[in-house]
Nucleic acid binder design. Structure first.
Lengths: 144, 144
DNA sequence: ATAATAAAAGATAAATTTGTCTTTTATTCT
DNA sequence: AGAATAAAAGACAAATTTATCTTTTATTAT
């Protein structure tokens, strides 16, 4: 479904959202620990997301990653697109370049509705929304 | 969604189903051309599927791949599992080992229904069913 | 100013996926 | 029996993804 990189990205972003309330910042070390991800690898990912303005960062002591209101309002879809591209949103399940309604691959119509729901899910769930849910303590970002 | 290998596999299997009526056999060359796949690569894939009894083959002149009634009755799910494993069927979208109803990751409940429909689609659509649809000439296995 | 901190950036490496080429084995036909 | 055919198998190579380590840059606090 998602690449491993994208899984790390989503977990990291939800983690940052959750931990960076007020003007708290979260370090790469904390993110790595909090999401069971390889530290240097998740650092690269956050760097990438930071360049793409999906999250903010400050260097130096007390630095780290954080999110502003705008960041929190981003849908999951934005993270997925930033990391895995828009393949899942636009491409044919069988990888056919010109698969379409009028020129469909064999599974096109079968997959259509599923794809629609998948996209809807990613478009409507914002980072902040996941955040609210995590507050209830009923959701987890790593095995325990 | 699916690996490239799995995309080739699905297209190849549908192609074989379609072309191997009666006691026709389909060669690797035909499969490769008919599905726009690298010949030697799709050969490996068919070998694999053949070992796993999802398709049958005979060597030598007039040899090639074909499907019997049982093969045609297999759901898409079997091909996907044979090539990509059952990850898509059993694993957490975020890759968490012990994500479950009682111990869910943040997207577990949002993804649940989509996953169910995806599995249902793969379980209910058999190779033969796709086959019937291709007969109408309204579906395609490669760009044109 | 200097030392400490933490992200950014760069280089490299391991692992996996994707793809190619060659040889071997089984089967058919003459 | 021998030649031709086509899959099976094996070895190898390129590309991509995943992961690690080191150096640099920006910022803060002393």
């Amino acid at each position: 479904m998602f690449s491993k990189t994208c899984e790390y990205a989503i977990k990291a972003m939800i983690f940052v959202a959750q931990k960076s309330r007020g003007d708290q910042r979260v370090s790469i070390k904390e993110i790595a620990k909090g999401t069971d991800a390889p530290e240097h690898f998740v650092a690269k990912i956050m760097q990438d997301l930071s360049r793409k303005k999906l999250v903010h960062s400050v260097k130096g002591p007390n630095g780290g990653f954080y999110m502003d209101a705008h960041d929190l309002n981003r849908p999951l879809a934005d993270i997925v697109k930033a990391i895995d591209g828009d393949k899942m949103f636009v491409s044919c399940v069988l990888g056919l370049k010109n698969c379409s309604e009028k020129n469909p691959c064999p599974v096109h119509h079968e997959y259509k509705e599923i794809k629609k729901n998948l996209i809807k899910m990613m478009d409507t769930n914002t980072i902040g929304k996941f955040n609210d849910k995590l507050d209830t303590g009923k959701f987890f970002l790593k095995n325990h």
